[in-house]
Simulated assay, not measured.
Amino acid sequence: MSTLDRSTAPGHTRAPFRQFAGSRIIERQIDLALAAGCETIACLVEGIGREVIEAQRRAERGGARFIALQEPRPLSGLVTAADELFVLASGALPDEGAVLRYTARPAVLVFPAQDAVSKGYERIDAEFAWSGAMLTLGANVERLSELPPDADVISALLRIALQSGVRIQPLEKRLLEEGLWHLSPNEGALSEREARWITSHAAPAPFTAPGLAIAERMGTRLARDILGGRSARVPAIAAGLSGVLALSLGILGYPLASFGFGALMAMLGVAGETVERIAQAGQIGARRSALAKTIDWMLDPILAILIALASPEDTEWLRLFVPAVLFGLLRLAQHRGGGKWRESYRDRVALAILMVPAAFVGIVQPVTATLVLVVLLSLFRLPDRVE
């Protein structure tokens, strides 16, 4: 792959460094290379800047070696004749599924020239234009030594692959028509594709878990505005602060307000997790942030403490025992259950909201005990999951 881009006007962001769904295009190319099974990633660069260093970290996090090259000659020492070379053009943003489907063996992926050339794709003959992706033979790299130092390496590898008989694999032109494949896309094209990409990776919960369904859809909408920016962590930070406020208000004797902030913590936590999940979609080796894990771990204990604080003092140990049983059964049902109802057991947003009117009337403990009975009875109706 390459970060070199001669087509970008001075003062504008080069195509490989443009943002798509919270990551640069070069980073999305690395994700694709890792998904294709690449063990070493060589990238042609003009210099080692912040973007290249972050690309290296992404590759290494996925288990691959990353080598930045400022000239093509060292490439021949990295690739043996027995290797296969996966090549992506500078600024190419392909459809991952199509690439993986057609590069099981060496192939030059192409579009019909009449549809692609006008969009900036390189014509290879009268009929086809190169899509910007191919899998070629490692032995072809040796022929790069015959080229002048200022030659376009990616274009040269394409010509060598065609001359050596690598098969041509036509792609469906709908990939271009539906905006699923781009070469050096502008901001408008990236924005349109990003909206579709976010929707396809959101997978919100069904409305059998109403609180989760609303919170995850809220997170999906937020992702369109904050993905890749510093604001991406705001929902998770706000969830943490809401949890602190909820606990403080519960201790001070304000159960109604404490459950309100508890519901807000649950909703913002889910929204923040949705934003993070969408941002990490397609990344090999991506991990949840420590903040997201902490909120997830602390939500049930905080809600259990709020229920205990809102219960009558004369019930003594039952104040904490009843909510502890409830959350234990919910966790058990969540792991045992399947289908659309599984998400219902995970819905802490709806649970916290339910406790608000219960706290207003003063029946938090009876409502909690009723929920324990309902969840317990539902467990007997769940089919055993086959691992």
Rank of each mutant, 00 (worst) to 15 (best):
Q283R: 08
L351G: 03
P301L: 08
L309Q: 12
G269R: 05
L299C: 04
R342N: 07
L351K: 05
A286L: 14
I307D: 09
A290F: 11
G269H: 13
L329W: 03
V349K: 10
L329G: 10
M267D: 02
E316C: 11
A350M: 15
W341L: 15
G272M: 05
W297F: 10
V270H: 05
H335Q: 15
M267V: 02
R336C: 02
A324N: 04
E276W: 14
A350L: 15
I305R: 04
R336Y: 02
F327L: 14
L299P: 04
L326D: 15
P312T: 11
L268C: 03
E313A: 08
I305K: 01
A290R: 11
R331S: 08
F327R: 11
S311R: 09
R348F: 08
K293G: 05
P323I: 01
A333Y: 02
R342D: 02
I302R: 00
A290C: 02
P323N: 00
R331H: 08
L268S: 06
G282D: 05
R348L: 09
A286F: 12
A271N: 03
Q280D: 15
E276L: 08
Q283W: 00
E343P: 01
R336E: 12
G338Y: 06
G282W: 00
G269M: 12
E316A: 07
E343G: 10
R348E: 01
V325Y: 04
R319Y: 01
A290N: 12
T294I: 13
P312L: 04
R277P: 07
D314G: 05
K340G: 11
R277L: 07
Q280M: 13
I295C: 10
A333C: 06
A271C: 03
S344T: 12
D300I: 04
I295A: 07
V270G: 06
E316H: 02
W341S: 15
E276H: 07
G339L: 03
S289N: 10
V275N: 07
I295D: 06
I278N: 15
D296V: 04
A271R: 00
A292E: 08
T294W: 13
G282M: 03
R287E: 08
R348H: 04
R288G: 03
